[in-house]
Nucleic acid binder design. Structure first.
Length: 444
RNA sequence: GCCGCGGUAGUAUAGCCUGGACCAGUAUGCGGGCCUGUCAAGCCCGUGACCCGGGUUCAAAUCCCGGCCGCGGCGCCA
């Protein structure tokens, strides 16, 4: 390896490394050239470290090479670590300089101020944009959320599964899908792992989770939709009711809330983004049947939503601020969704078939999770399908899963980018995606 | 898909409403110069732009039409 230490590791060990030789490898962030002395701030994923080139203290040819540096050169600076009145408290007095790469033309974005560029320009030059620590921090948090998800559910006896993203059936929940040419047939990109996680429960794994991409062919123009995003999916067998599913979802969010104030790195990023820790009340997030939500919106805000309809985004925002004030909660489960707006595999209430055991979880006024209890009884599934006007033949392979022993089960899908966005208060979901795919954008 | 707003140097913006003094201002970047402790380093010089096409007018960055692109609202959803 050319590089042996991240900048943060050098700084963490600075006490013992002081006075000895260290090697700083990374990108040239800033150059402050005072003539006889030149300050070159080197940046890597973990931080900044100032290197100093001083005429008289560094060999002449090294000084000459230092004169050729530009921002975003890739360098390794070898020198002596010493205390200095910099932000880090230390600097490296350079003795050797290795320039690994020069920009071949002026940069289209300045890393230190890339956030002031338009999002479209930033995404066009995303690999430069993300060098800005405030931008990469989003992906550190996203990576952390995914890791917590994996850790939490693994710890609860869930098995991680990996299901196909090229699928045969066109649609399952009404979302539009992308067709792909599959040899001489048309296949589709999966809009969710729904059928296959149920498959895995029925196949005897009982509790499963998956982190994988999903694809939605909706031509939306909003700050909260992507045509490709990552879904955190769980599916659980042997549940008593959809409250068991909500308990498992809530457990994960509690873990996020607790660990995000315990773990220094994430805590610092959230402070840097000027966002509050996630608030969940002692007794858990409120669970409010949607029919009650209609009443709340009507009484508190004079907003009427016809019973049996889904909440619109304004309704979600209003409910978000309502539960924040009333319950001190950033999360709220909206339960018992109307059958009309839920997919055919959702279990309906026994006594009220127009309502279901389906729920959504809103985080700070935005839907981040959808879940529910699934219909596991073969005959009921066939009936549900018919009630939705769907054709048995189109779902035959799926229905067969339920013929030979299927436990009561339920699950949920969580939007990784939406959770990241709501945790950090991002203005646009594209910021939570390294390379967003939207209606217009398929490069880089 | 429907609707609204926008497009000025590499980047970010001023100017547009009320056409002329704008061969387009500012910051940053870039090129050159000075400077041995900067930390948004500073100072001096230079460089570089009105999305495309058509129209109105003596005169268009500015007004009108079309196209392309960008941003957002709604719907749908995570």
């Amino acid at each position: 390896m050319i590089k042996d230490m991240f900048i943060r590791d050098i700084l963490l060990k600075a006490g013992e490394l002081e006075g000895s030789r260290v090697k700083v490898c990374g990108w040239v962030h800033r150059i402050r050239d005072l003539g006889g002395v030149k300050f070159v701030i080197v940046r890597d994923r973990t931080g900044f470290l100032q290197t100093v080139f001083k005429r008289g203290e560094v060999p002449g040819d090294v000084m000459g090479l230092a004169d050729s540096l530009k921002e975003e050169c890739v360098v390794c600076v070898d020198g002596v670590l010493r205390r200095a009145p910099t932000r880090e408290g230390f600097e490296v007095l350079a003795l050797e300089l290795n320039v690994l790469s020069y920009p071949v033309e002026p940069l289209p974005l300045e890393v230190h101020s890339s956030l002031s560029a338009g999002l479209s320009t930033r995404l066009r030059y995303r690999w430069i944009d993300v060098r800005n620590p405030k931008v990469s921090a989003v992906f550190m948090v996203k990576s952390w959320v995914a890791r917590k998800f994996r850790e939490y559910y693994s710890g609860q006896g869930f098995v991680e599964i990996f299901t196909p993203k090229i699928v045969a059936s066109g649609t399952e929940s009404g979302a539009d899908v992308f067709p792909v040419l599959y040899f001489d047939r048309t296949a589709y990109l999966a809009q969710s792992p729904q059928f296959y996680k149920q498959f895995a429960v029925i196949a005897g794994f009982e509790r499963v989770f998956e982190i994988g991409p999903v694809f939605r062919a909706e031509p939306h123009h909003t700050i909260r939709h992507l045509n490709e995003y990552h879904s955190l999916d769980i599916e659980i067998g042997f549940i008593n009711s959809f409250h068991d599913v909500m308990n498992y979802v809530e457990g994960f969010f509690k873990k996020l809330a607790e660990d995000s104030v315990k773990e220094e790195g994430i805590k610092r990023i959230m402070e840097d983004f000027n966002v509050e820790p996630i608030r969940i009340p002692e007794g858990g997030a409120p669970r409010i049947p949607i029919r009650k939500v209609y009443e709340i919106l009507e009484e508190e805000y004079g907003k009427s939503i016809p019973p049996g309809e889904d909440l619109d985004s304004e309704g979600e925002r209003l409910l978000g601020s309502y539960v924040r004030e009333k319950y001190g909660s950033d999360l709220v489960f909206v339960t018992e969704y109307p059958w009309k707006v839920r997919p055919f595999y959702t279990m309906r209430k026994e006594d009220e078939p127009n309502w279901t055991y389906g729920f959504d979880l809103l985080m700070r006024g935005l839907e981040v999770v959808t879940g529910g209890q699934r219909e596991h009884r073969y005959e009921n599934l066939k009936k549900n399908l018919a009630d939705k006007g769907l054709r048995y033949e189109d779902f035959q392979y799926y229905l067969e899963f339920f013929k030979y022993g299927a436990p009561p089960h339920g699950g949920a899908g969580m939007g990784l980018e939406r959770i990241t966005m709501q945790m950090l208060g991002l203005q646009n979901i594209r910021e939570a995606r390294l390379l967003p795919r939207d209606t217009e954008r398929i490069t880089p």
